[in-house]
Design a binder for these strands. Structure first.
Lengths: 225, 225
DNA sequence: GCGTATTTTAAGACAGCCTTAAGCCGCCCA
DNA sequence: TGGGCGGCTTAAGGCTGTCTTAAAATACGC
């Protein structure tokens, strides 16, 4: 799950970004409107959700939102607004946003609203299963045959991506972009290493790996179980 | 609401039983200690509250209470005692009971005290346990292996959060918000310090900590005990 | 207002994750 | 059949996040 956050106040930006990373989102942060717009337009298909500050130096969140909506009608957008700067009614009519929060807000609430939007966008699951392997997003826990398996953050995020896309091919570029962040070098073998970690921790010995390699493309967890 | 009443004097037993039935409680009556213990242990999960006479033929109420507490830490227990047979201080320490009444008592008073206990017992859970560690929200008390452990307010609040979410991952962001009521400040190590306090006070030496660290995410108390 | 208890900050030590790199293996194609 | 490309595997180092301790700041009770 990849999120774009456009927020100029560094403290708030860090807080939100770190909070989301604890939930195993990949977060890109832009500290001003111009940078935000560039990131948004360059990588629009990659983002599962976008958080926009309302008041931004250089270019307001509204303009960014309009630009996004020209390209993509569906990606959920949530505005973060300072108190009392927004007229609720006007807000609903004027922008293409899906929701907004007044600062200061409880992080829990942001998460809850994000989940609502992501649920309707991608289906409501937060537990995933393949054969005897189960992953629970909320408790951040993975079990194999009922026995807990400890995964690190990156391992967890990678497995989550694979299971969310069970049956579909996950291209290497897509994996890099969803699990690692925007600035990451695309010519890297980290994915291989982490696929290997997952296989070691979760494969059943003597059986073919639950992660199939698609040579030249990426990886896939099959659908048929 | 189902109540177990253990009382050897038939007149009193009937009086209480009928009174409670008028209040639409389901009442099981045992007329001696042995029968009371059997009923208690056979149907423990069914009872919402237990009334125990202090002096009973065959087996005292105290013994029954101890036996109950071995099985179930939470079900409210009220003692009914003849006047002047109990030293209040000793009572509080020695038994696992929640309250007691001196005979003769007004029926209304019994009802009132029962309601207090039932409200806190059924409204929301207010005792939590992990292995030999117990936390009681109402009395604000924590014990390890039955021995009281003094916790400060913050320590208590943190432990309560962890135990309320036993089995779930508690994200650092969530902890900061729930226990410290801080928004938008992620640059604090206060959580670590307090986790360390709890570990020092409550861990069993030579064993892994009862609080698991989830690197990059937060902490978790396991579910499986 | 003083002394004690609690909370918070800060800093160095430490551990474990992330990433890189290098060598190996196997598949594909000439 | 051999070369090359891509993926697998392993180990090691850097780095980030956590632990631990101590001391400062704050709250509390007398």
């Amino acid at each position: 799950m990849r999120v774009l956050l456009v927020e100029d106040e560094t403290a708030i930006a860090n807080f939100i970004a770190e909070g989301l990373e604890e939930e195993s989102f990949a977060v890109d942060v832009a500290h001003n409107g111009r940078e935000g717009l560039r990131l948004a337009l360059d990588n629009l298909p990659e983002y599962d959700l976008i958080l926009l500050d309302w008041m931004l130096p250089g270019m307001s969140g509204i303009e960014i939102c309009r630009a996004i909506r020209k390209e993509n009608k569906t990606v959920p957008v949530i505005f973060l607004t300072a108190k009392d700067t927004v007229d609720d009614v006007v807000f609903g009519l004027e922008t293409g946003a899906n929701d907004y929060l007044r600062k200061p807000f409880a992080f829990e609430e942001l998460l809850a609203r994000m989940r609502v939007l992501l649920r309707s966008a991608t289906g409501e699951q937060n537990t995933f299963r393949y054969a005897d392997i189960e992953l629970d997003v909320e408790t951040h826990r993975v079990t194999k045959a009922g026995i807990p398996v400890e995964l690190t953050q990156k391992e967890f995020a990678l497995l989550e991506l694979l299971l969310r896309n069970k049956g579909k091919a996950c291209r290497r570029t897509r994996i890099i972009e969803k699990v690692w962040d925007i600035n990451f070098d695309h010519d890297t073998a980290v994915i291989d290493v982490y696929i290997n970690f997952l296989r070691k921790k979760l494969d059943t010995p003597g059986q073919p790996s639950f992660i199939q390699t698609l040579r030249g493309i990426g990886y896939r967890v099959n659908d048929d179980v």
